[in-house]
Simulated assay, not measured.
Amino acid sequence: MSLTVKDGQNFALKSVKARLAGQSHSSPTQWQPPPPNIVKVNFDGAVFGDSHEARVGVVIRNEHGEVMASLSEKIAIPSLVEVLKMLAARRAAIFARELSFKNVWFEGDAEGVVRSLRDGVSSNAFVGHLVKDFRSIVGLFQTYSISHVRRQGNTIAHALAREARMSIHLRIWMEDVPPNDLSVVTKDFSS
Rank of each mutant, 00 (worst) to 15 (best):
Met1Leu: 10
Leu3Val: 14
Leu3Glu: 05
Thr4Trp: 06
Lys6Pro: 03
Gly8His: 05
Asn10Arg: 10
Leu13Cys: 05
Ser15Asn: 13
Ala18Gly: 01
Ala21Gly: 07
Gly22Ser: 09
Gln23Cys: 09
Ser24Asn: 04
Ser26Glu: 13
Ser26Asp: 12
Ser27Val: 00
Pro28Val: 07
Trp31Cys: 07
Pro34Phe: 04
Pro36Ala: 09
Pro36Thr: 05
Pro36Trp: 01
Ile38Gly: 01
Val39Ile: 04
Asp44His: 04
Val47Pro: 00
Phe48Asp: 02
Asp50Phe: 07
Ala54Ser: 15
Ala54Ile: 02
Ala54Glu: 03
Gly57Trp: 05
Val59Tyr: 03
Val59Glu: 06
Gly65Cys: 13
Glu66Pro: 09
Glu66His: 15
Met68Cys: 15
Ser70Lys: 10
Leu71Cys: 12
Ser72Trp: 02
Lys74Arg: 14
Ile77Val: 07
Leu80Arg: 14
Leu80His: 14
Glu82Gln: 00
Val83Gly: 00
Leu84Gly: 00
Lys85Thr: 00
Arg91Trp: 08
Ala93His: 12
Ile94Cys: 10
Ala96Phe: 02
Ser100Gln: 10
Ser100Gly: 00
Trp105Gly: 04
Phe106Asn: 12
Gly108Met: 10
Leu117Met: 09
Gly120Thr: 10
Gly120Arg: 08
Ser123Ala: 15
Asn124Gln: 06
Phe126Lys: 06
Phe126Gly: 05
Val127Met: 10
Phe134Asp: 02
Ser136Cys: 07
Ile137Lys: 05
Gly139Thr: 02
Phe141Trp: 06
Gln142Thr: 06
Ile146Gly: 07
Gly153Ser: 13
Asn154Thr: 11
Thr155Lys: 14
Ile156Gln: 12
His158Thr: 11
Arg162Thr: 11
Arg165Ser: 04
Arg171Ser: 14
Ile172Met: 01
Asp176Lys: 13
Val177Cys: 11
Ser183His: 14
Val185Cys: 12
Asp188Cys: 14
